[in-house]
């Protein structure tokens, strides 16, 4: 119970929002974007934060999910759920095949390979226009329905995304305190020591790569249906960077860090709207400043300060009583 106390508060807040502000643009439109980014950041954090493997191409799997749903339903008239499943299978196979050679690499080389993957997939979206509609993208996806109930309003989409997001966050929290989570952290801490304890590090890395890719892929499918439109722009190199920023901004390795990073970065454009032309510059500046002065991330830094204060306070009161 105590382990998940923070999670329950977060879940209640998420589910209360539309009840308090049912018609707010911030809930039904921004809220969906926030939830999308949270799932993506949390899934990337499994790979980057837990296992310590950087990826600059996470948007590729998000995009593959979105395009499989869009192309298979629009061009081939496939059932939306079937299309989503096909996307998941394709991404599972692709990420599994790529995981071994990619994750054998370390540091800058790993960064380069994942970046390359992201760029290649993005160029494919732009160039394979007989399927993808090219730079203009494609629109007109069928309505997604769950057990016969169509998701046909902004509010229903919010509920769908909120529940999917809360499930993903719970998965991520569960993994942290499990054999698999510890194996991931061991790979992060010292790969050689992990191997000496019988951890098949190549397999562990490969599994988390596939798991995180599949989560991103499902998010992409839902995103495509919700937007009713996909274009390559949403899955560019820059979006991959933005996802990495979310994870690092909140605090690498912390699920709630990723959640906070995703929330902040999704709301930033809404705030920066006022500055318009300054948006790109301010975004870059924030990224630099946080990484230089709080490399452990906002959330983790806050958490540490909080516990330090708590400790000092309890020590203070202990002094009084003695």
């Amino acid at each position: 119970m105590k382990r998940l106390a923070g999670y329950y508060c977060f879940a209640i807040a998420t589910l209360m929002l539309p009840l308090l502000f049912p018609d707010s643009y911030y809930v039904t439109v921004v809220g969906v974007t926030v939830c999308t980014n949270i799932v993506l950041a949390v899934s990337l954090n499994l790979l980057m934060g837990y296992a310590g493997q950087i990826s600059l191409g996470h948007a590729a799997f998000f995009g593959l999910g979105a395009y499989s749903s869009a192309v298979l339903t629009i061009k081939y008239g496939m059932n939306p759920w079937l299309a989503m499943t096909a996307g998941v299978i394709a991404v599972t196979v692709l990420s599994y095949v790529l995981s071994r050679p990619i994750l054998r690499l370390k540091g800058h080389y790993l960064a380069m390979a994942t970046l390359g993957l992201g760029i290649i997939v993005h160029i494919f979206f732009v160039q394979a226009d007989q399927f993808t509609g090219g730079p203009d993208g494609i629109s007109g996806l069928p309505v997604l329905s769950i057990l016969g109930y169509p998701i046909d309003s902004d509010l229903k989409w919010y509920w769908t995304f909120a529940i999917f997001m809360l499930a993903s966050v719970l998965f991520s929290l569960n993994i942290a305190h499990s054999r698999s989570g510890r194996a991931l952290a061991a790979v992060h801490g010292s790969e050689i020591a992990a191997q000496m304890l019988g951890v098949d590090t190549a397999k562990v890395k490969s599994h988390v790569f596939v798991f995180s890719a599949v989560l991103a892929c499902i998010t992409g499918s839902l995103f495509a249906h919700q937007q009713d439109f996909v274009s390559p722009e949403s899955f560019s190199f820059f979006f991959s960077i933005e996802l990495v920023t979310m994870v690092v901004l909140g605090g690498l390795g912390s699920t709630f860090g990723a959640v906070i990073g995703a929330i902040l970065l999704s709301l930033l454009p809404e705030v920066l709207l006022v500055f318009e032309d300054f948006e790109v510059m301010i975004f870059g500046a924030i990224l630099m400043v946080i990484m230089i002065f709080l490399p452990q991330g906002l959330f983790v830094a806050m958490e540490e300060t909080f516990f330090r204060l708590l400790k000092r306070k309890s020590q203070g009161s202990a002094d009084v009583t003695s």
Binding site: R179, S180, G181, R182, A183, A186, L197, V199, H207, F211
Partner: peptide, 15 residues
């Protein structure tokens, strides 16, 4: 982590 080989749950069941 030392107990890794003496336990066997996987990623999905852990999630």
């Amino acid at each position: 982590v030392g107990c890794h080989m003496h336990s066997n749950s996987g990623l999905i069941s852990a999630a």
